[in-house]
């Protein structure tokens, strides 16, 4: 796998504290553009915490504090002048549990473009919704019931709806926090295919606790343990030739 010369996201010496707890220690990592980067590691290792730094979702947690710098296209996202709302329009997020709004499928996808003012006329909005659903591989399944409830879909469909909702605002980066952990193997496979397609247009960062999934979908992998970035490199290297013993132990299933 080739790695772009210029990284999309550069994180440098990131530390996260939850109150007195030092959850993430001096993490530095480069995220390449139009590729999938996977964060792996045992539960509580800080991988999700780190992911939430990229769209400043940690801001919404009481007592959370982020130190260090994260730049997207050379712009510091922790610049006090930067509005996190603006950032989150550029950095979309898909959560662990599918969380569609209790509204219609159409409204779910249209919500983001609507609040950001991306489409004013009705046909424009319809176009955004349809193309987002297409990109998320959901359109064929739901085209006859766009105005029915989004929560009435199956788990896998709901998660694809959440992906459609995220890409409807045309973000540059999509963060996925264990997007398949609540899904069955078939739905998981569909999401993984979708991730491979989305990679053409988006920079994707995925947190997963499944090493096979990381191996299947990602080009780069970062292994976290106890709040520390242990090792980071191309996925092939990490899985075939890990440099650290802890990485080796984890991917061979000795702990985690």
């Amino acid at each position: 796998m080739s790695v772009q010369t210029k990284p999309k996201v550069v994180a440098k010496d990131v530390n996260v504290y939850y109150g007195d707890k030092h959850a993430l220690k001096n993490v530095s990592v480069n995220i390449p553009e139009r590729a999938v980067t996977a964060f792996i590691g045992p539960s509580g290792c800080g991988k999700s915490t780190f992911l939430r730094c990229f769209n400043r979702m940690n801001d919404t947690v009481d007592g959370a504090r982020v130190v260090g710098s994260i730049q997207i296209d050379d712009q510091d996202i922790y610049d006090p002048d930067l509005d996190p709302v603006q950032l989150r329009a550029r950095v979309g997020m898909v959560f662990q549990k599918p969380n569609p709004f209790p509204k219609s499928i159409f409204e779910n996808v249209a919500y983001g473009p609507r609040i950001h003012g991306l489409a004013h006329a009705k046909p424009d909005m319809e176009e955004i919704v349809v193309s987002s659903l297409r990109k998320a591989g959901l359109f064929e399944e739901v085209k006859d019931r766009l105005h029915e409830s989004g929560t009435g879909l199956s788990g896998g469909q709901q998660q694809r709806l959440c992906i459609a909702r995220a890409i409807a605002v045309s973000p540059e980066v999509i963060l996925m926090d264990e997007p398949c952990s609540a899904l069955d193997p078939i739905a998981t496979a569909r999401i993984e295919e979708l991730i491979a397609e989305l990679r053409e247009n988006f920079t994707i960062v995925i947190v997963t606790h499944s090493m096979q999934q990381a191996a299947r979908v990602s080009q780069r992998t970062a292994f976290f343990h106890l709040g520390i970035l242990v090792e980071e490199g191309t996925t092939d290297d990490i899985f075939t030739n890990p440099q650290e013993k802890r990485t080796q132990d984890y991917i061979t299933g000795r702990f985690g």
Binding site: N55, M57, T60, V85, Q86, L87, R88, A89, G92, M93, F95, K97, N99, P100, F101, P102, Y111, G112, I115, H116, C162, R165, A166, V169
Partner: peptide, 13 residues
């Protein structure tokens, strides 16, 4: 459910 708030915030609301 907090997931609804997160979904909205994550979209940039």
């Amino acid at each position: 459910p907090p997931s609804i708030r997160q979904a909205a915030l994550g979209l940039g609301a």
